[in-house]
Amino acid sequence: MSTPRTVLLTGASGVVGRSLLRTAAAPGTGSAAARGLRLLAGVHRGPVPEATDTVDCDVSAERFGLDEDSYATLVREVDLVVHSAGLTEWGLPAERYEPVNVTGTRQVIEFAERAGAPVHFISTAFVAALSDDAPVPLGEGNVCRNYIASKRSAEQLLRDSGLPHTVFRPTNLVGESGTGWTSQAQIVQLMSDWLARGRAPFVPAHPGVRMDFVAQDLLSLAVLGALREGDAEGEYWVTYGAEAMDVPACLRTLAKHLAGRGRTLAPPPVVNPDELEPGVIEALPPMARSFMSVLRDVSEVTRCSGGVLPTSMPELRTRYGVPHVDDTAAYLTALDYAAGQST
């Protein structure tokens, strides 16, 4: 039996990292062992119950915060890097993203160059909103802008490095497609929980935009597929694109979930934010103002991406065997899982 290739997974305690470890540990031909891979979980903070092998790894620090001997040992040991460490919270000042999302990527590049290891980078599909050919410019005050810009800078660092690498650009993630499991609530769940209370007077969404959510295990399977195949070049949009549900379909799915739990939701009207009177959202109570502003800004991101996010899903299904999962079904499963966790 050949020796498994060792994969350093940065950000192993995060949502993507834990999903990758969980997916890789699943029995069958899709398991990490069957793929000839050994996943080494790089951990800086937080528990990682799914990990069997761990290493201290602070990507924002020189040598990942390790002493020279430990770092040199890690360099010799690692064959591949999956870089999923990142600050993903929206709405922070640009300088808050620099240490992990930008400097952290520089540290990963330096390590990978020494190790002779290709890098598989987890970015975001929202970078489409800042592309040079975006149909409309993204507003300077958009809640996602600084986060997106940091991921775009990280992608550029990888391109400039000349390292063999792939880039995976997922849209907003929901729980596993079959179970709804997630290691922690994400923005989709938080927004859905608020909408389920019936507090939204309307939903601000630009005409034609899609509510593009992807089950986190589909991303994990795509990344593991690239590792299995030894691919070290490619950019993949882990999105549904034109297959994604529109806003009314999303609201109907949320209402269906609530009906299954004996609750009723009358879906609020969908309103074009560009047609709102100035100050309408700002005049709402604080919590409603916060949630409605996020909905408006995410809609703006999608509009600046062409209204429908780019997608590589058909290629991922063919190339890496990513299953065809209905997005409304995955969203409903994620809602049901979250509701079960809260009872």
Rank of each mutant, 00 (worst) to 15 (best):
L40W: 02
A41Y: 11
A41C: 08
A41K: 07
G42R: 05
G42L: 12
V43Q: 04
G46Y: 12
P47D: 15
P47C: 08
V48R: 14
V48Y: 15
V48Q: 15
A51S: 14
A51N: 14
T52H: 11
T52W: 09
D53W: 08
T54P: 00
T54M: 11
V55Y: 03
V55A: 13
V55H: 08
D56T: 11
D56L: 10
D58V: 02
D58F: 10
V59Q: 14
V59S: 06
V59K: 09
S60K: 03
E62H: 15
E62I: 10
R63C: 01
G65H: 03
G65Y: 01
G65A: 02
G65P: 01
G65S: 04
L66E: 15
L66H: 05
L66P: 00
D67I: 06
D67M: 04
D67P: 01
E68R: 10
E68C: 01
E68P: 00
S70M: 00
A72H: 12
T73H: 07
L74Y: 02
L74K: 08
V75D: 02
V75H: 03
R76W: 07
R76A: 15
E77P: 00
D79L: 05
L80V: 03
V81M: 00
V82H: 07
V82P: 00
V82N: 07
H83T: 14
S84Q: 13
S84M: 10
S84H: 13
A85W: 01
A85E: 11
A85N: 05
G86Y: 00
G86F: 06
L87I: 01
T88H: 06
E89Y: 13
E89N: 13
W90N: 07
W90V: 06
W90P: 02
G91V: 08
G91S: 01
G91A: 03
L92P: 00
L92G: 06
P93Q: 06
A94P: 00
A94M: 05
E95V: 08
R96F: 01
R96H: 14
Y97C: 10
Y97I: 10
E98R: 15
P99R: 09
V100T: 15
N101Y: 05
N101R: 07
V102E: 05
V102D: 01
V102F: 02
V102H: 02
T103E: 13
G104N: 13
T105E: 07
T105V: 11
T105R: 07
T105S: 12
R106V: 05
R106H: 07
Q107V: 00
V108N: 06
V108E: 02
V108D: 03
V108K: 13
V108M: 09
I109C: 05
I109M: 04
E110P: 02
A112I: 05
E113I: 13
R114E: 13
A115S: 10
A115H: 06
A115V: 12
G116P: 00
G116T: 09
G116A: 12
A117E: 12
P118N: 09
V119Y: 06
H120R: 10
S123A: 12
